[in-house]
């Protein structure tokens, strides 16, 4: 039996067990195959007809939120008015396969960054999208963290910045070759922590162009919640504005499509509290994080853990992040100017 057939059978069992006894799942496409998880486009057929949906099957559950946690977060976000897909079924162990999986409704719209940036370069839709992102983040960060699953990852409340630096150092030390630029960046981060926020928040952790589903100037859904955690809310807007997620559209600091004031004003008017020092710190920290991520992908190729040419090519993208990192920690850095 092929992997696809095994997944179809397992996903069918999951949907049947979730209260749709006549359901049958068919895989109709692959959205992405990552190192963390596989995302499949599926159709669910039952007495009521055929509906499109998305199935995420986790491969590496060590460093990310479990699908059951993710489903709980999607519920919290939806209640708060953050646009998200609807949870249809979830399990920590797919029948017969054992991997955790989440099935959500399919949301129409653009996901591929180059398509989003092309369609939003014109007619001012980019700033409308930046406003929508700021509003969504403001609402997300207003969620009472006591409602968040208690076993979700959280940065140390005592010193979240030191905690994050130690995590970065641990990841850096696991790489097979030295990256002095990243080491230097982490040193800077440890020496220059921002003032902590008034209160912690539920942080999406991967809120960027590529993980949002977009209509014409509209944010249809925020997806890919597996890096969600409790921490400093400014991490999210800073991450969205990293140069690497602009995909070459450097004239639009917010995600390659919008202006920073549009994001910031909408964030504040939806309850968020903007802190410049934390914005700059997190942009620097997540730039170091992604430099390590790309280096790790290349290391997986060099070790023979994957034969993906895309992951191999990641090794040659590390200098982009290193360049951003050095610009961010230089005193005369234009990225911090508002």
């Amino acid at each position: 039996m092929s992997t696809a057939q095994a997944y179809e059978e397992a996903l069918t069992s999951l949907v049947v067990n979730s209260g749709r006894p006549s359901a049958e799942v068919t895989i109709v496409g692959t959205a992405s195959v990552g190192t963390q998880r596989t995302t499949l486009f599926i159709e669910i057929a039952d007495d009521a007809g055929v509906s499109r949906a998305v199935a995420q099957i986790s491969l590496d559950i060590i460093s990310s939120a479990l699908p059951t946690q993710e489903a709980a977060l999607l519920g919290l976000a939806a209640n708060r008015g953050v646009p998200v897909p609807r949870v249809l079924a979830v399990t920590d162990a797919l029948p017969g396969i054992g991997q955790p999986a989440l099935i959500t409704s399919h949301v129409d719209g653009l996901v591929v960054p180059r398509q989003i940036l092309r369609s939003h370069a014109e007619h001012g839709a980019g700033d409308r999208l930046a406003v929508a992102c700021g509003s969504a983040l403001g609402r997300l960060h207003g969620i009472d963290t006591r409602l968040v699953p208690s076993d979700l990852d959280r940065l140390s409340a005592d010193d979240p910045y030191l905690d994050y630096c130690q995590r970065l150092t641990a990841s850096l030390d696991e790489l097979p070759i030295p990256y002095p630029v990243i080491r230097l960046g982490i040193n800077w981060l440890a020496r220059n922590p921002p003032q902590p926020p008034a209160s912690e928040a539920l942080v999406h952790g991967d809120f960027r162009t590529g993980n949002i589903i977009v209509g014409e100037g509209r944010l249809e859904a925020v997806v890919d919640w597996e890096l969600a955690h409790v921490g400093d809310p400014m991490e999210d807007p800073a991450y969205l504005c990293m140069r690497t997620w602009r995909f070459g559209n450097d004239e639009h600091p917010c995600g390659g499509f919008g202006a920073l004031p549009a994001l910031r004003d909408a964030y504040e008017s939806c309850g968020g509290s903007w802190r410049d020092d934390a914005f700059h710190w997190w942009m620097t920290a997540r730039t170091a994080w992604w430099a390590i991520g790309l280096a790790r992908q290349a290391a997986a190729f060099c070790d023979g853990d994957t034969d993906s040419i895309v992951l191999a090519a990641s090794g040659r993208r590390v200098p982009e992040l290193e360049y951003d990192l050095l610009n961010l920690i230089s005193d005369d850095n234009p990225m911090t100017a508002r």
Binding site: V181, R243, R246, G248, D250, E251, P253, R316, R317, P319, E320, E322, Y323, D324, L326, N327, P334, M335
Partner: peptide, 17 residues
């Protein structure tokens, strides 16, 4: 880094806005 970027992505060698 600039030497390596000139190989891997020369168009990136402008300071971001």
């Amino acid at each position: 880094v600039e030497r390596r970027l000139a190989i891997s992505k020369p168009s990136y060698l402008t300071e971001p806005s």
